[in-house]
Computed example of a mutant assay.
Amino acid sequence: MISADMIAEIMGFNRFYSNILNLLNKQIMAEGYSLTETRVLFEIGKTDRCTANILVNQLDIDRSYMSRMIARFEKKGIIDKTQSPTDSRINYIRLTEKGRHDFNRLNDMQSEQITHLFHKMNEEDQKLIFDAMIMIKNKLSDVTDVISIRPFTPSDIEYVISRHKTLYYAERHLSNVFFNYVDRIVYQFANNFNPKTDCLNILECNGNPAGSIAVVKAEDKIAQIRFFMLEPEMRGRGYGNKLMDMALDFCREKKYKHVFLLTISAQVIARHIYERRGFRKTDSYDKSEWGESVVEERWDLEL
């Protein structure tokens, strides 16, 4: 049973961690964005089909405060609104080119601040703190999150595109050439989707998209795994394994004999998922047009 002393320590840790977050976000606040505004920009950046209602519900922010914030963003030219083609009452909110630039700059600032903080510790202490943070996040999330995996709907296409762009910029600094490639292959998948040979599953956490994986027919009896992605907060919790296993089960159900996927060499953790299921790297390609020193890899599996 949890004791009064344990509760006091947890409350103390919460106050301490709040101070650390304030320290990390000082530079962002100096750029003219509050912490709440930064959170809202992050959510808007996830999809081109974001709405004010989605933001209010996901972030638990007062509706009138959200309206004022969105009006300020619109005035600054970092977001624009487009009317839903199916419901005139709904306006989609998305980042403009200036908004995407600001968002990426804020993300880079946070990365630099975290790097600076951790460089003050030796590698052993860095790993100790990192592992403890992952454990705390995962254990608390396991008892609070509602998780599901479902087939995609048309509205998920913009989520898949937006999050691939945002995450690959934030984590790998890939170029606009890669982003144009993402646009092309995801829309191509959506336009040619055949439920008899293809699938796209969406991981949901508390009703919000949190990851994806697709299977696409490449040739007769050959399938390709595509759009494998997890939100950072979902990693290390086994959901990448679940998505991959569901995709491979679909391949076996549809009588595919061979599966392959394309990834980049920097995706070290994802490679462990492939290796454990018998995938083997069969080729690599220079993709310097996507970013500095980017190498694309092909991994194959016989079913």
Rank of each mutant, 00 (worst) to 15 (best):
I44A: 09
G45W: 01
K46Y: 10
D48S: 12
D48F: 05
C50V: 08
C50Y: 07
T51K: 03
A52V: 11
A52H: 09
N53T: 15
N53M: 15
I54S: 09
L55N: 03
V56T: 09
N57S: 11
L59C: 02
I61Q: 11
D62W: 02
D62C: 00
D62R: 01
D62N: 11
D62H: 02
R63W: 04
R63C: 06
S64W: 04
Y65I: 08
S67F: 09
S67A: 15
R68G: 14
R68A: 10
M69S: 00
M69P: 02
M69G: 00
M69L: 12
M69E: 03
I70V: 05
I70Y: 05
I70K: 01
A71H: 02
A71Y: 05
R72M: 03
R72W: 05
E74R: 09
K75D: 11
K76H: 06
G77L: 11
G77C: 11
I78Y: 02
D80M: 13
D80R: 14
T82Q: 07
T82E: 12
Q83V: 13
Q83C: 13
Q83M: 14
S84H: 02
S84W: 08
P85T: 10
P85L: 12
P85E: 09
T86D: 14
D87L: 14
D87F: 11
D87A: 12
S88K: 15
S88N: 13
R89K: 14
R89P: 05
R89H: 14
I90P: 06
I90C: 06
I90H: 10
I90D: 08
Y92T: 04
I93W: 05
T96G: 09
E97K: 13
E97H: 12
K98Y: 10
K98S: 15
G99F: 10
G99V: 09
G99Q: 08
H101D: 12
H101Q: 14
H101S: 14
D102V: 05
D102T: 07
F103A: 11
R105N: 03
R105I: 00
R105Q: 01
L106S: 01
L106I: 10
N107Y: 04
D108E: 10
D108R: 06
M109N: 00
Q110R: 05
S111K: 00
Q113T: 05
I114H: 09
I114E: 04
T115H: 11
